[in-house]
Nucleic acid binder design. Structure first.
Lengths: 116, 116
DNA sequence: CAAATATATATAAGTATCTTATATATAAAC
DNA sequence: GTTTATATATAAGATACTTATATATATTTG
């Protein structure tokens, strides 16, 4: 599994990306999908997930809709119209950042001249 | 510039990667090279850099060699034989993590079936 | 049928990492 | 002569996670 430290700051944009692409999801579903997509590399714990979702809701970036399924409560989260542009921004930032990280693994760091 | 939150946990493996590829470097040099490689996207501040270097030294992963150049002190850091395998491990972890992150930007998250 | 596992949300205490601010000092550029 | 670049250092503060704990139902396994 990925070193936990590497996850810091990634979880929020990852969650926003999932909600953005797939529409309404509930918390447990999000953890499972992250695990599946990352082939077990990323484990999104509940202790991390719910505080993030609650904060996003407080900020008006996501909204909730409760539903009782099989006697269990589910809380679906979806991106609000207001939160849409901010979500896209965060997602773009993450994508850009991943591109930047990749440069560090290119020969000579993608630089034209050697500084060795 | 990249959102600061995204950097958390990345700085240590990035520093190790630079030392591993380029050999001995001094702190200021590291900050400049990170800025150049990332085209200004990643700014490694001194407040982050030096505590990381000092901790790596304490752990025996890097070693130092002082040199006075132009009346200014330079402290060169390099990976110790003992720290070599651990450095490679951390670097491989980061590279693997970047690959995992990329999956989140593939169509349907690289999954064969749609769960929408 | 009992126990374990899966489903589902929630919060609080603790850790670690980084940001920001501050300090010191020399050299070069304008 | 003032600003910018070079060079290292540390302390206070913010924050994002991890770990632990709590609650409750449904399903599977033995």
């Amino acid at each position: 599994m990925a070193s936990n430290d590497l996850l810091k700051g990634m979880l929020k944009p990852i969650i926003l990306k999932l909600l953005f692409e797939k529409g309404p999801m509930y918390g447990y579903e999000i953890t499972q999908l992250v695990k599946e997509i990352s082939a077990g590399e990323i484990e999104l714990t509940f202790g991390a997930l719910y505080p993030i979702l609650h904060k996003l809701e407080q900020e008006g970036i996501v909204q909730t809709e409760s539903e009782v399924i099989n006697n269990r409560n589910r809380i679906y989260y979806s991106i609000t119209p207001k939160g849409n542009s901010l979500a896209q921004e965060k997602i773009a930032e993450l994508e850009e950042f991943v591109k930047t990280l990749k440069i560090f693994f290119k020969p000579n760091f993608g630089l034209k001249f050697s500084y060795a």
